[in-house]
Design a protein around this nucleic acid. Structure first.
Lengths: 216, 216, 216, 216
DNA sequence: AATGAATGAGGCTTCATTCAT
DNA sequence: GATGAATGAAGCCTCATTCAT
C-alpha cells in the first residue's frame, strides 16, 4: 500500500503532523483563526514553534490543510450515509442527506464551527475556501434533488437555488445550535426541518408523513 | 429633544462621529475587521488616530455601534416594507418580508457583507453580536409566521425552526451573491426562493402562484 | 526658507529622526548592519522600537538614508576643501583632494567604517549602494586627474583606472587605520601615500618635492 | 604522512568534508555569509544538517577554514607565479606579482568575492579574518618591494605603505570588476595599473616601457 | 557517521492605545 | 477637540544548534 509508512520514522513524523493539525484545529475552533497564536498551537500540540514550522510553511497552510482534508471527509461521510440507506427512492435519499448533514455536524461540533463559521471572517483567502466548502455541500444536495426531479418524484425546479436554500437552512440551524449554551438535541429541530425542506421542493404531505419514522 | 444640537459645536462633533462611522464601515467591509487598522479609518475619515479615540473608546466599540445601529435600521426597513404592502393577509405579509430582506441586502452589498459575513470570524465578541443580528431577523420572520399560523393560513408548526430555516436560506443565497464576481440579479433566484419558502411552511401551490406577480 | 520648520512640532520631529539616524549610525558602525538589532538602535536613540518604525518604514531604509545623506556631505566636503586651496594648478588640486579624503575619513572614523566597509557584506542592496559611493569618489578624483591631463601637467592616461587605483589605495590605508588598535596618525602615512600617488600618474619628482610642505 | 588515508573510511570522511567546504564556498559567494542557511549548504553538499555538524562545530568554523585554506593557496599561487618568471630583477618580480594577483582573482571570481568583499561586512570576527588576508597580500607585496629597495632598483621608501597602496589599488580594481555586469577583461586595465604602480615607487619610465610586453 | 526532527532564542514588523502639545 | 508622535506587547517566521534513532 502506498499509505503504509516505509520506516518507523515516517510514521512518527506523520503522527506529529497529525498532532499539530489536531491542536491547530482545537485552537482555531476556540479562538478563531486570527486570534490563534502559533505559540498556542505549539503548546497544545506539546511541541515548539519551530517544530510547527518544520511541518508547515506558514500558519495559513495549517488552516488550508485542515479545511481541505476535513471537508473531504465530511462530504464522503454524507455520501456514505446516504448509500447506507440502500434505497433508490430519490426522496428518501434526499431526506437521508439532510439527516446525514445534521448528524455529522452534530457529531463534530467544533469541526463544524471551524469549517462553517470561522473561515468566513478570516481574510479573503479563507472566505474563498470556506465558500468552496459550502459549495461542495450545495452541489451534493443539488445532485440528490436532480435525481428526484429526473425521477419525477418532485416537480422541476431550479435545483441550484433549492440546494442553496437547503444548505443555508441546515447551516443556520447548526450554527444556532453550535453557539447556544444549552443546545437542545439537534435531532428534534432536525425532524421539523426535514419536513419543511422536503415540502419546499414539492414533496407531498402524505409522502413526508410516511417518512417520518424512517430517519436515522 | 436630546438629539437636537444645542450649539453649532455639538452639531460639528456629531458630524465628525458620523464621518468616522461611515469610514469605519467602508474600511471594515473592504478589509475585514481584523485587518483594518485604525489608521486606515482615520485616513478615510480625514481625521487622525487621536481624533477617533476622542469619539470612541476602542476600535471594537466602533464595530459594535456600527452593527447595532445598522441592524436597527435594517430591521426597521423590513418592517416598513411589509407595512407598506398594507394588506392583512399573513401569507402575503410573510412573502413581502422575504422580498424585503433580499431587496435590502441587494441594495447594500457591503453592509450585508460586514453584518452577515465578517462578523462571524472576527473573534468571539463579534460572533455573538453577529448572531444576535441573525436572531433579530429570525424573530421578525417568526412573528410573521406566527401571524399566519394564528390566522389559520398555514398549519401549526415550530415557527422558530421555520424562521431559522428561512433566514438561513436567505442568508446563504445572499452570501453566494455577495462573493460572486458577476452576481446575477438577486431578484431572479429570489423569486424561486420565495416560492420554496412559502411551500415549506405549507402554503398551497395555488396560493403561491397567485402571489407570483405581486412581489415588489 | 524651505528648510525652516513651520511649527515647533516639525522641528521636534526632525530632531527625533536625526537622533535615530545618529543612533543607528553608531550601532551599525559597532555591530555591522546585519548584527544590529532594531532594539539596539531604539535603546541608543532613547526611544522605542515602535518609535523608530514611525519615522522609518524598515531597518533597511535607515541604512539607505544614512548612506545617501552622509555620502553627499562627504563628497561635498572634499570639493570644498579643494576649492579652499584657491589655486588653479591641477597637480596641487589633485594633491589637495588626496589630503582632503584622508583628513575627512580620519575625522570620521566610524562613519568611514560604515560607509566604506560595512555596506559591502550586508546583502546585495547595500553592496550596490556602497559601490555607488566608491564610484562617486572615483569620479571626483578622475575629474581632478582629467584637469591635470588637459592642462598638460601630467601625461595622458586612463584616468578612470588611475582614479580607481587612487581611491583603492586611500581606502585600504584608511581601513588599515580604522581597524588597527593603536592607529598611528593617518597624516604620517598619508604624506608618503600622496607622493606615491602623484608619482604614479607621472608627476615629476621635483614637483612632488615642491609640494611636500604645502599639505594641510 | 598524516594526510594519507589509513582506511577507506577515512578517505570517505575526508571527501565528505571537502564536499561540504565546496558547497559552503559556493553558497557563501552567492548569498553572503549571513544570509546563507546551513540548510542551503547541506542541500548543495547533498548531505544533511546533522552531517555538517558532524564535520564542523559551527557555521562560523566553516567560513574560517574556508578563508584560511584558500588564502594559503592564493598566496602560494602568487609566490609560485613570481618564481616561475625565474628572474632575479626585483622590479620584474614586483611587476609579476601584480600580474599574478590580478590573474588569480580574474580566474576565481566568486572566490575573490567571498574573500575580498563578503568577509568585510559579516560581523567583526570575519572582518578581522578578511583583513588578515589583506595583510598577507600586503606583506607579500612589501617583501618584493623590500627586495627592490635593497637592490637599489628603486629609491628607499615606506614599503609598508606602498604595499598597502598597491594592494588597495588592486583590490578596488578587482571589486569593480567583480560587481560589474559586463566586466571587460581585467588584463586590459591591469596593464595600465601595473605601469602606475611601478611608477608610484619610482621605477623609471624607460624601465616600465621595457617591461610592457613581458607580463604574462 | 548520518539523518531529520525538534528546540528556542531572537529578528523584524504591526498596531491598538495613550498622551503631550 | 484634534493631532501626530510614542509606546510596547504581540505576532509570524528564521535558523543555528542539538539529539534520538
Amino acid at each position: 500500500m502506498d499509505k503504509a509508512p516505509r520506516t518507523p520514522n515516517e510514521e512518527r513524523t506523520r503522527r506529529r503532523r497529525e498532532r499539530i493539525l489536531d491542536a491547530a484545529f482545537h485552537v482555531f475552533s476556540r479562538t478563531g483563526y486570527r486570534d490563534a497564536a502559533v505559540d498556542d498551537i505549539a503548546r497544545e500540540a506539546e511541541t515548539s514553534k519551530g517544530g510547527i514550522y518544520f511541518h508547515f510553511p506558514t500558519k495559513e497552510s495549517i488552516l488550508m490543510e485542515l479545511m481541505g482534508s476535513t471537508a473531504d471527509r465530511l462530504v464522503e461521510k454524507v455520501e456514505r450515509a446516504v448509500e447506507a440507506e440502500s434505497v433508490t427512492d430519490p426522496v428518501v435519499r434526499a431526506g437521508a442527506a439532510i439527516d446525514a448533514v445534521l448528524a455529522i455536524f452534530a457529531g463534530h461540533r467544533s469541526m463544524a464551527r471551524l469549517l462553517l463559521v470561522d473561515g468566513l471572517g478570516a481574510g479573503s483567502l479563507f472566505r474563498t475556501e470556506t465558500l468552496r466548502l459550502h459549495d461542495r455541500f450545495v452541489l451534493l444536495i443539488a445532485s440528490y434533488l436532480d435525481g428526484a426531479v429526473a425521477d419525477g418524484a418532485i416537480p422541476p425546479l431550479d435545483t441550484r437555488v433549492a440546494a442553496t436554500a437547503w444548505f443555508g437552512a441546515l447551516h443556520e440551524l447548526v450554527i444556532g445550535w453550535l453557539v447556544s449554551e444549552h443546545p437542545a438535541p439537534l435531532e428534534d429541530s432536525g425532524l421539523a426541518l426535514r419536513a419543511m425542506l422536503l415540502r419546499s421542493v414539492g414533496v407531498t404531505e402524505s409522502r413526508i408523513a410516511s417518512l417520518e419514522g424512517s430517519g436515522r
